[in-house]
């Protein structure tokens, strides 16, 4: 609505598009769609179990890498910023793993008590 008033405001210089950059965005999107497709195929063709679960977890981390690295641009930030984010997340991943094991233990113990 205010296009006509551009001249009156301190207008910024508009830079031309960089096709290489935009291509990279779409390539990343393609990779994300492709990986999700693989997950879908695995969900319907493979037998459920720890192996399939680890494939899902692995592929989710692949997608995480592309979203955080490319879309959120973290790959290109200063090293200290990358580690400030990644290191706490690594501790979270450990906590998740630990509590999954704890869950399995609760299941076994419950079976012993109630059966």
């Amino acid at each position: 609505m205010s296009h006509a008033h551009h001249e009156s405001t301190p207008s910024l210089h508009v830079h031309p598009k960089d096709p290489a950059k935009i291509r990279k965005v779409w390539v990343t999107a393609g990779i994300l769609a492709f990986v999700t497709g693989i997950e879908f195929i695995c969900a319907f063709t493979m037998h459920r179990g720890p192996f399939l679960t680890s494939i899902f977890v692995l592929l989710t981390f692949v997608k995480t890498f592309y979203i955080v690295g490319e879309f959120m641009h973290l790959k290109y930030e200063a090293k200290i910023l990358i580690w400030s984010i990644v290191l706490p997340v690594m501790f979270i991943i450990w906590l998740i793993t630990a509590l999954l094991m704890e869950g399995g233990y609760i299941f076994v113990e419950r079976g012993m008590i109630f059966n």
Binding site: V89, L95, I96, L100, E102, G103, I106, F107
Partner: peptide, 19 residues
């Protein structure tokens, strides 16, 4: 991410404590 992890951890623990 910490708050979502809280939910994810709860989910994982409860799911693994079921058959």
């Amino acid at each position: 991410a910490l708050s979502f992890s809280g939910l994810l951890i709860t989910y994982g623990t409860i799911r693994y404590s079921h058959d």
